[in-house]
Simulated assay, not measured.
Amino acid sequence: MRYFLHVTALADEKRTVYAYCLSDFAKIIETGSYIAEGEAHQDPIKAGHIFLQRTLRTVAAQEGVLNLNISFDSTMTEIAFDILEVVPLIHPKMHKTTKRVLSRFTSVEYSSAEYGEDQATVPEATALDIATDRLEYAQSLKGCLVALYQRFTNSKNYIR
């Protein structure tokens, strides 16, 4: 069965939030998000690879996910070009690791998500909503305190 993974990113001056939504033809199966701050926020290619690797590992752990279509939002095109080797590789080791994680699937197809405000599919809109909510939360006082706590507790949702 074919599964669809939509990935997106939103950023402000201090952080970037990466979000994903895994779905099949019938329903949304899983969603998640990661935050990159500091040095990781300054290098979007490296943070994007880390996000994609973690997301693909999570997706591969789902039962029955063998055929995957990855839909990159317009904010993630640099990562897509890096994976497809359209541009010169900036982080060859990260690229190699991402390709290795992609080899867990029987087939992988890539697509680009281009849409207006009312043209987004449900998984695309879900990923955007998750990223927006997480970015707004991270900008709040409570979100800043949680991010500080996650730095010291080695949280898996935090990209360093």
Rank of each mutant, 00 (worst) to 15 (best):
E117W: 11
P92K: 01
R104Q: 15
S103W: 10
S103C: 11
L145V: 11
I83A: 02
A9S: 15
I130K: 05
D118Q: 12
G143T: 07
E109A: 15
T8D: 06
F81I: 00
S74D: 10
A61S: 14
L84C: 03
T153H: 14
T126D: 11
L84M: 08
V146L: 11
E13N: 08
R100P: 03
A60W: 05
F152A: 04
S71C: 14
V101F: 04
E117Q: 13
I130Y: 06
R2A: 12
L5M: 06
K142W: 04
A9F: 05
E124F: 08
F25S: 13
I35D: 03
V86L: 13
N154T: 03
R15C: 00
R15T: 04
K27M: 06
T132C: 12
A19R: 00
R151S: 13
R57M: 15
E30I: 07
A11L: 07
D133G: 15
L52Y: 04
D133Y: 14
M1Q: 12
Y34N: 00
A19Q: 02
S23K: 02
L128T: 07
Q119N: 13
E114I: 13
V59W: 01
R160H: 10
G64V: 05
I130D: 08
G48W: 02
L52F: 03
T106Y: 15
D129E: 15
R151I: 11
Q150I: 00
P44F: 04
I159V: 03
A26Q: 13
A26G: 05
A61M: 06
I70V: 06
L128Y: 11
S155P: 05
S107G: 02
Y149P: 00
D73W: 09
G38V: 06
R54M: 07
Y158D: 12
V101A: 01
Y149T: 08
L22S: 04
H91M: 02
A26C: 08
R57W: 10
V7E: 01
L128G: 07
K142V: 12
S71V: 15
Q62A: 07
K14E: 15
E37N: 11
D82M: 03
Y149K: 12
A113R: 02
K156R: 09
L56R: 00
A61G: 07
D24I: 03
D129V: 12
L68W: 02
L5C: 05
Q53V: 12
A125S: 14
A40H: 01
H95Y: 11
I29T: 07
Q42P: 00
H41Q: 06
T121G: 06
V65Y: 07
